[in-house]
Design a binder for these strands. Sequence first.
DNA 1: GAGCAATGTTGACACCGTACACCAGAGTCG
DNA 2: CGACTCTGGTGTACGGTGTCAACATTGCTC
Lengths: 197, 197
Amino acid sequence: MSYHHGGLRAALIAEGLRVARTGGAAALGMRELTRAVGVSPNAAYRHFADRQALVLAVALEAQDLLADAMRARIAPSASPLDRLRAVGLGYIHFARTERGWFELAILTRDDGPPGTNGPFPAPFQLLLDALDGLVASGGLPAARRAHAEWACWSTVHGFADLTTRGPLRRQDPATLDALASYVVDTVIEGLTSGGST
Amino acid sequence: MSYHHGGLRAALIAEGLRVARTGGAAALGMRELTRAVGVSPNAAYRHFADRQALVLAVALEAQDLLADAMRARIAPSASPLDRLRAVGLGYIHFARTERGWFELAILTRDDGPPGTNGPFPAPFQLLLDALDGLVASGGLPAARRAHAEWACWSTVHGFADLTTRGPLRRQDPATLDALASYVVDTVIEGLTSGGST
DNA sequence: GAGCAATGTTGACACCGTACACCAGAGTCG
DNA sequence: CGACTCTGGTGTACGGTGTCAACATTGCTC
């Protein structure tokens, strides 16, 4: 070993994930990461254009971790409605328990021309599937399916942000659990009850 | 003039507001701000403990600007329901049109012991008032008033974040306007329709 | 084995936040 | 009037950062 590290790129991402878990995105420094991996600062530039690129690479991993955590909370035998609940509550729970990773996971890379959204990230896809499942089971009128994902995501993501960086930051877990359920149920109620548009 | 500046503190905050409008919180640097005001970097430390303190002082101003913008969108003759809508849509509109200020306005200073939230910030108070008004007018059963603010704030704030930093960032304004109305109406529907809790 | 592309290293630059010691000016008191 | 002190500024310096340019080393291929 020594001069050529081998899997520097992977090693940097792995270390980044470790560091970001407690320190968030701000803790991902070129010098700090390369130091931890035992390599000179500039070595990283062979694998990442700049710091931002490294952060986004770590963010991609964090996004997968978020998706995994959400999937783990969906009971295979659950009803479509409960699956939708689990998606939302899983998102919120991950945000609360893995604050650093969550901060990364919701980082959006600005690629593509304005207007287009690339392939949807895995966590968002889980939400789309849950909504489609609800429609298929008759739990949500097909006519009301359009844009439902944005209502759900807004609420769940907003709650996650309030508990992560906002005024609910220091609330005790029990209260937050109850609030989370209430908030998720409220959007679902809004979606499924008989409004106009 | 010259050696003693006089209103350095106010001048720094004002300049900070100017800079942050386009650059967000990250643009608020000790050196940059003091340079713009024409003073040595360390002068700022007579008025702010550190950079964070300066940022929070500017954030407080931004919070007022947000509240003002929201108030400006509430028609005095509007129905309680429309007032609630205006509060949410005002919040979202401000986030979209004043991205830098918005980023500051939602910054929470971590004061106080865990569990307590200090006096509510002005924008949040507007939401509370709107909800109370809706209850008073019979538009919302008093039994369902509890925690309603968190459902509303989660949704509205989440949507604002999605359009500001998230996947809706590059969506065209017309689409966002429609989506915003839809999302706000969905939560309100969830609150007012006949659920359980 | 020679040449080459990939992947490291070293050194330097410009910038940042901030700690420490010092100085200018205004106000007060003997 | 002159000295004393308080407030709010200045200068210098330290350790940290991201990043560029030039150079060294290694493994792959002809």
